[in-house]
Design a protein around this nucleic acid. Structure first.
Lengths: 100, 100
DNA sequence: ACTACATATCGGGATATATCGATATAATAA
DNA sequence: TTATTATATCGATATATCCCGATATGTAGT
């Protein structure tokens, strides 16, 4: 885990917002396409709608967040579902608490 | 307190290192100039020496860190001494814990 | 006032990030 | 196979950050 790289990812309001929205997927996003519930996360298109940014930008943001393990990706059919990686987020906060 | 702005400041290894060095000023820096102890912090020149970066860059970094209240500045004579703002650092971690 | 020194600010070139539209890839449907 | 759809990647431009040297500001000593 690289704190500096995670901090870079968290230096953008939209990316922090996405992480926050994923805390309560049921209230922040419409019902899923193709899957019965939010067990695997939220698809990119719904996250895109909520941000108002372009598809490529949101995909890029999610890829960044995934690269530093803040979120988990699951591909089902045409869709990629993203959800929070609570273990990693917790470890990041603990490490920050100790190293800061 | 703006989490995004603080995260930007903490997206650079040198700035995070400075914050870390200031946790134990006695072991990380030579004796102070002009003041008997580290009560007011460490002067810019000693921080500059330890980073190996230019004076202007280090001054700029310290100003950034000061603007988001991660450190406290005290001017004594020609020198500016910087020390950690433990209250703010603690509040930042708490806010991060709740908002992330 | 003049000099010396510590720090802050300015201006700039190199590098990185933000964000878009266009294109590629991958999966499904017809 | 072809068309459609979801997502990822590419290429480009605008903006921001990194980091320097030069200059300005503030303080103290002579």
């Amino acid at each position: 885990m690289n704190i500096i790289e995670i901090n870079k990812v968290l230096s953008n309001k939209v990316r922090v917002d996405i992480l926050d929205w994923l805390k309560d997927m049921e209230s922040n996003f419409p019902p899923q396409i193709n899957v019965p519930d939010f067990g695997n996360g939220v698809c990119v298109c719904h996250i895109q709608d909520k941000t108002g940014l372009s598809q490529s930008t949101v995909s890029h943001y999610l890829t960044m967040m995934h690269k530093v393990d803040l979120i988990i990706a699951t591909r089902i059919g045409k869709w990629t579902y993203y959800r929070r990686n609570e273990k990693m987020i917790g470890e990041y906060i603990d490490l920050l608490k100790n190293s800061l």
